[in-house]
Amino acid sequence: MSDFQTSTHRERWIFQPQDLVNKWTTANRRSAEILAQYGTTRLKVDPVDGSISNPEPLPDHGTLVGSSSVKPLSCEEEQVMRIFYEQKIQEVCRAFKFPHKIQATAIIYFKRFYLQWSVMEHHPKHIMLTCVYASCKVEENHVSAEELGKGIQQDHQIILNNEMIVLKSLDFDLIVYAPYRSIEGFIDDMDDFCRAGNGAHQRLKDLHQTANSEVDTMMLTDAPLLYTPGQLALAALYKSNSALSVLDFERYLESVFSRQHFDCPVEQFIQIISSINHLVSQLQLPGTKEMRHADRKLKHCLDPSSSSHDDHKKKEKKSKHKSKRTASDAQLNS
């Protein structure tokens, strides 16, 4: 779809920073309340109509009210987990040699999903895989759940089980616009702008590549929920150009603005670019210790019995724990 202007992406999925904070806080609070009330955050799904309801109170929870040893994740810890699994999406997509677009779509799905849910309600590892799977379907690069599961030693049933909840949480708005294509467009345009000779061609190619990897990092920030793909692309190009000095960027921006209609003046646009790049510079990739801590907390929230050696429950969740170890722990320990 060429028309971002009329897209659901523009209309419904670009937010103000405060909107994001509100949504995350709401989901986090809801989940913390459920934890306090029921002793677990694992939601109960009705097998008939798929409606989601609060968990069954744990049999021994009554005596523990107020003194539950299980603590909910904080908003910050949730963020750590999200970023960690967004990196995982990139890893999985690289391992499968998927085109960039698929990775970006999957990450945007993942971000949108967790605007409505806390990681305590749906384990991000499962959602991450399902987002990759859905992204492949939407981008006409179909990979079967089984193939995807096999490739990363995960139970593919988890992917399928979560497909509907993911699609529904996305409100079935499945077409997303990634900045990579915008970058391509701008590079072509810069080619004309520079009236590039052979040498400049190569330098624009380098700029293209650097900007692409800049966007890879940008995808791990909140920027894709706050700015349009065109804005993200220009921010990435701006930053890459400051390193490579291929062209006079401000003059280029002015030429773009003189040819096209924009919602804001150039000055404001430059402000946007610097806000985006500020977000990127603020990005903190989760450290091993931090992540392990959050992961352990999440495990207890989803399955409090894991801390009290409940064999019966353990057995039930066995496969999940096993797979979790292969995904996150292996990475964490490396």
């Binding site: 009705d46 008939v48 109509d49 798929g50 409606s51 989601i52 309801s53 529904k168």
Partner: peptide, 11 residues
């Protein structure tokens, strides 16, 4: 498809 309802006919 609302969250409520546990009957055989979804809401």
């Amino acid at each position: 498809d609302g969250r409520g309802g546990g009957s055989n006919r979804p809401a």
